[in-house]
Amino acid sequence: MNKTQNQRAWLFVAPVLALVAFNALIPLMTVVNYSVQETFGNNIFFWQGVGWFEDLLRSDRFQAALARQLVFTAIILTIEIPLGVAIALTMPRKGPWVSVCLVLMALPLLIPWNVVGAMWNIFALPEVGLLGKAINSLGIDYNMTRQPMAAWFTVILMDVWHWTSLVVLLAYAGLIAIPDAYYQAAKIDGAKPWAVFRHIQLPKMKQVLTIAILLRFIDSFMIYTEVFVLTGGGPGNSTTFLSIDLVKVALGQFDLGPAAAMSLIYFIMTLLASWVFYTVMTRNDAR
């Protein structure tokens, strides 16, 4: 396609640019400003240079939070993507059940994040919560306010429950876009179900799955509300992910400089990882 040269088109983009500037660019610049200075309140600032960044990258606390974050993201991606695809594959392609399935799938996505956290908090209570009580009655000692393993288990379960639907919906959209002729041809060619998945469904879902992985990666990297409500980052620091740590530093201790530096590192990591993901996954198409 050829692009039409029309300078006036910029006029239409201008309001959005202004909005983005107010929403993103100006706060971002404020953060950059904080990250290179030290303050003791009263609007008195001292130049700090890259000091905060150095301290932060060397600190055990940050490294531990980062490690927890990476492990968490890796776990939920390896669970949610295959599970989402698997559920999408079992959903009906036509008929009255389609809308029932879609509504059921959309439900978790419609619940506010803090409510999800609160729900699971009660759900997992060892004495009265359905989940907690059930596990304990099986003879397994389960209490997420005391055991880091139990806390992780609950956080991951909650995230899978909350977000797998998104992967399902995206994968499903990719699946129903495949023309019937492909399935018919595969039948005629004698393809087994695995071959159909490997050579028709998976390639055709590739683009939506790229988007699904990206979205889930970014979201899980920035997870805050649900975990904060559910465990508050505990027990100890066992579920203190990057964003929770960041809030503790910024608001709990009011260390604006280190918090700003941390935000920036966090931001750059997310951006970088997303870019790498996207480039790797779309590289084949360009060829």
Partner: peptide, 8 residues
């Protein structure tokens, strides 16, 4: 078929 079906 009417539209070519190939394994991409």
């Amino acid at each position: 078929f009417q539209f070519p079906v190939i394994y991409d």
